[in-house]
């Protein structure tokens, strides 16, 4: 039995039109305008997380290609000019978190150019070793809410 005229589309909790009265008891207990508002908010949250998942998936595809095709390059500027790297920069601010997470997970990666382009800052200014520069950027990521500190 359908209790609400939800659009018949896939949601993280299944097809909206297949929900039953029992499952929507909490919705039924509140007035219709508020119920509708709450559902709209849920839709927005779901749409937002879906877009985020798509972006992370796209980022990982591009980053895998970039790493595979530039590992033997000698200089930073040639790595940074790779089409996949440029597309990652084109993803804009939402790419900062995935870049920092990948840099931490893989303990590597020449992401300094992209992070500089995306943030307008250089957290590693004056540092000449990649490991030190990565640490500086990871600290920056923690301080700016893009990363959580690991448990010690």
């Amino acid at each position: 039995m359908k209790v609400l005229d939800f659009p018949d589309r896939e949601t993280p909790w299944g097809l909206a039109s297949e929900r039953t009265a029992g499952e929507y008891v909490s919705f039924s207990a509140i007035s219709t305008p508020w119920r509708e508002l709450e559902f709209r908010q849920l839709q927005l949250v779901w749409a937002g997380s879906s877009r985020e998942a798509e972006l992370v998936e796209r980022f990982n595809e591009l980053a895998d290609t970039w790493e595979r095709e530039t590992r033997a390059e000698s200089f930073a500027h040639r790595r940074s000019m790779h089409p996949s790297y440029q597309q990652i920069i084109g993803l804009g601010e939402p790419a900062i978190g995935p870049i920092l997470q990948r840099m931490r997970a893989k303990r590597g990666g020449h992401w300094f150019w992209a992070l500089h382009a995306l943030t307008g800052q250089d957290a590693a200014v004056g540092l000449t070793k990649p490991s030190e520069a990565r640490n500086a950027w990871l600290r920056w990521g923690v301080d700016h809410g893009y990363l959580t500190p690991l448990d010690s």
Binding site: S74, H77, W113
Partner: peptide, 24 residues
């Protein structure tokens, strides 16, 4: 930790690259 130019210069502690960003 280093690249071909650093290696040729006898420096295995840092990559040599004409970059505007930190890390080189």
């Amino acid at each position: 930790d280093y690249n071909c130019l650093a290696w040729a210069m006898g420096d295995c502690s840092q990559p040599w690259s004409p970059s505007l960003q930190g890390g080189y």
